[in-house]
């Protein structure tokens, strides 16, 4: 019978390899937390007069249609004058939070002619932001309503003074030769309540069409004239203005042309156009209509014509 050799004896590892498992778990957990907080931007506070529709962890803060943050908490201000909304921005959007940034709550708005913020019916309210350009800040005062569009360099605003509003409201289009060149931004009663005032904005390429002697008239609604001999005469600028109201203008073809109207100039709004105005055909060069045409479509009109280039690039 052979003698079996004794096995070699050696010490086992002081720390068994199994402890690598929690170590790896620790690294993975740390990485997950790090990856999450890397996406976190600064937390800012926006004060609103009214907090309806704003809900913690639901309401999103959007910029250019993309979520750049989410509401973390809503609290009443100590003096009860409004609410403080705490917003956690994403990291990439941290630079939005600078002095001058504007915040406003977007809620669904359905008027006779305009539907805005339709997505908020389904998604709930959201907060829109326009970035500021000043120093970084973490406390802001929210606006009660959407600020007038800005950032379309070269557009110009004018003030119209009319007898009555008719069917014009904020968002109504402004036409030149039935081409939409701008939008009514706001309407209100004049301080003396003797007239109504409205602010119109003309898009960048068309600003030179408005001269100091330009005439504006109310182009909205049906204009139905029944004359004994001429039969019925129906005149309307466009279907959009039929529903939503609208403003049209014409510029006299004097020679030389009157100087372009400056920002904020005031004009009278007449209830209808003088026949002579419709015959004016001044030659005013406008900027080439490559990019800015789309700017005007952003005001609500989809481009009807598709150029061959855009069609070929479409998927």
């Amino acid at each position: 019978m052979t003698e079996h050799p004794a096995p070699h004896l050696a010490r086992t590892r002081k720390i068994p390899l199994i402890w690598l498992v929690p170590l790896i778990a620790l690294l993975a957990a740390a990485w997950m937390l790090f990856a999450e907080y890397r996406e976190h931007g600064p937390e800012i506070v926006v004060d609103f007069a009214d907090g309806s529709g704003i809900e913690p962890r639901k309401t999103s803060v959007d910029f250019k249609g993309v979520s750049v943050g989410v509401v973390r908490a809503v609290s009443l201000k100590p003096d009860l004058s409004g609410v403080s909304v705490h917003v956690r921005l994403t990291r990439g959007a941290a630079s939005l939070a600078a002095e001058g940034a504007q915040f406003w709550v977007v809620q669904p708005e359905i008027s006779f002619g305009a539907v805005r913020g339709l997505d908020t019916i389904l998604r709930g309210s959201r907060i829109n932001v326009l970035p500021g350009r000043g120093e970084p800040a973490d406390r802001f005062v929210g606006l009660d309503r959407a600020p007038p569009p800005r950032g379309r360099e070269g557009g110009r605003s004018f003030v119209l003074d009319g007898e009555r509003l008719g069917s014009i409201n904020a968002g109504s289009p402004v036409f030149y030769r039935d081409v939409k060149v701008g939008v009514v931004e706001g309407t209100r009663l004049a301080p003396d309540s003797a007239s109504v005032r409205m602010r119109v904005r003309i898009e960048a390429p068309y600003v030179d069409l408005v001269r100091t002697n330009t005439r504006f008239w109310n182009a909205g609604g049906l204009d139905f004239k029944l004359s004994l001999f001429g039969g019925g005469h129906l005149r309307n600028t466009s279907l959009e203005s039929l529903i939503n109201g609208g403003v049209a203008f014409a510029t006299p073809d004097t020679s030389p042309l009157a100087p372009p109207a400056s920002e904020g100039s005031e004009f009278q709004l007449t209830s209808e156009a003088d026949k002579a105005w419709l015959t004016w055909r001044p030659q005013i060069s406008i900027q080439p209509a490559d990019a800015p045409v789309n700017e005007s479509s952003a005001a609500g009109v989809a481009p009807l014509l598709v150029t061959p280039e855009t069609r070929s690039t479409a998927p």
Binding site: W19, P22, A25, L26, A29, L33
Partner: peptide
């Protein structure tokens, strides 16, 4: 070791 790994993972 497994229990510690579980505890660590419960944090994230």
């Amino acid at each position: 070791a497994f229990a510690l790994a579980a505890a660590v993972m419960l944090v994230p």
